[in-house]
C-alpha cells in the first residue's frame, strides 16, 4: 500500500537528470557522514577491544571478543567517580546560575527602561568578544589569594553569568508582548513578580536552549579548571582525562584505556544531544542571526 503511494508522490518530479543528481547529493552527504562519525565509532570499538586485537596486524575492525578490561583498568588508574561528580556538580551549578542571572539581565535589557541601560548592553556585547585566556593570570592570583584553589566556587563563579546567555535571553524576552507586562503592572504586580511569573514561563524554550548550552560548555570547559585545581581529587573529567592522556607512565601506552576514558566523557553528552537536538540547532541559529 505504501509503495505505490510513495511512487505516485515522487514519480512526476523525478526526471532522469534529477534522479542522478539526487543520488550524487546523497552520496556526498553519506561520505561526509561517515567521515564525521568514524572517529567516534573507532573510539567505541577500540574501547571494547582486547589488547591483542588493538595491535593486530591484519586489522581487527570488529572485536572478536568484547571486553570491559579497559574500563576496569581505567577505574583503577583514575578516580572516575569523583571526576564525574565534580563535572556534574559544577555544570549544574553554573547552569542554574546562568538561567537565573542571564534571564534577569536579559529581561531588564529587553523590557525595562532604566538609566544606564545602553552602557550595560554595550558591556554585555564586549564581554561576548573577550577571550577567556586574557584573564587567566590575574584570576589565578586572585583565586589563590582568596584560598579558593581546588574549591567549587572557583570553578563556578567565573562562569555564573555568561554574556552569551544574557544576549540569548534578551533576544527571546524582546518577543514578549509589552501589553501583557503593562496589564500586569496596571494590576499592581511588582517587577520581580512580572519577571518570574509572567516573563519566565513565556521563554521556556529559550531557557531549555540556554540550559543545554551552558551545561555543555561547563562540562567541556578545560583551561580554567586546569589552572584552578591542583588536587587531582578536584579535577573535572576533561582535566583528569587530559593529564592522564599526556602522561605515558600512567597509561602504559595503552590506547584502549584512553578510548575507554574518552568514551565515558563523550557518551553522556552525545546521548543528551541526540535526544534534545532540536534545541541546539534552534538555539544557535537564533543567537547568531538576530
Amino acid at each position: 500500500m505504501t509503495a505505490p503511494a510513495h511512487a505516485t508522490e515522487t514519480a512526476p518530479r523525478l526526471h532522469k537528470g534529477e534522479a542522478t543528481r539526487r543520488r550524487l547529493l546523497l552520496g556526498v552527504l553519506w561520505t561526509g557522514m561517515i567521515v564525521m562519525i568514524a572517529p567516534f565509532l573507532w573510539m567505541a570499538l577500540s574501547a571494547f577491544k582486547s589488547e591483542k586485537d588493538l595491535g593486530a596486524s591484519p586489522t581487527v575492525w570488529i572485536p572478536d571478543e568484547w571486553t570491559l578490561i579497559h574500563f576496569e583498568k581505567l577505574v583503577k588508574l583514575l578516580d572516575i567517580g569523583s571526576h564525574f561528580f565534580n563535572s556534574t556538580l559544577v555544570a549544574v551549578l553554573v547552569t542554574v546560575c546562568n538561567l537565573v542571572f542571564c534571564s534577569m539581565l536579559g529581561y531588564a535589557l529587553a523590557k525595562l527602561n532604566f538609566a544606564g541601560k545602553r552602557p550595560v548592553f554595550a558591556l554585555v556585547m564586549c564581554a561576548l568578544m573577550v577571550p577567556g585566556n586574557l584573564m587567566l593570570m590575574p584570576m589565578f592570583v586572585m583565586v589563590s589569594k582568596m584560598g579558593l584553589i581546588d574549591s567549587y566556587a572557583a570553578l563556578v563563579l567565573p562562569f555564573a553569568a555568561g554574556a552569551f546567555g544574557v544576549f540569548l535571553m534578551r533576544q527571546f524576552m524582546t518577543a514578549i508582548p509589552d501589553e501583557l507586562l503593562e496589564a500586569a503592572r496596571i494590576d499592581g504586580a511588582g517587577e520581580w513578580f512580572i519577571f518570574w511569573r509572567i516573563a519566565m514561563p513565556l521563554v521556556k524554550p529559550a531557557l531549555a536552549t540556554l540550559a543545554i548550552f551552558t551545561f555543555l560548555q561547563s562540562w567541556n570547559n578545560f583551561l580554567w579548571p586546569l589552572v584552578a585545581t591542583n588536587d587531582p581529587e578536584k579535577y573535572t573529567l576533561p582535566v583528569a582525562l587530559a593529564t592522564f592522556a599526556i602522561d605515558p607512565t600512567k597509561t602504559n601506552g595503552s590506547n584502549g584505556v584512553l578510548m575507554a576514558g574518552a568514551f565515558l566523557v563523550v557518551l553522556p553528552v552525545l546521548l543528551v544531544f541526540i535526544l534534545l537536538q532540536r534545541y541546539f540547532t534552534q538555539g544557535i541559529a537564533t543567537a547568531g542571526l538576530k
Partner: peptide, 27 residues
C-alpha cells in the same frame, strides 16, 4: 534525512575537545 545528517555533522561540536583530541591522537 536532513535532520539525520544535521545531527551527525553537528555531533562533534558538542563533545569535549579534550576527549576528541585524545581520540584523534589515536586515529
Amino acid at each position: 534525512l536532513r535532520t539525520f545528517f544535521r545531527v551527525g555533522f553537528y555531533a562533534p561540536v558538542v563533545t569535549s575537545i579534550v576527549a576528541v583530541a585524545v581520540v584523534w591522537r589515536f586515529v
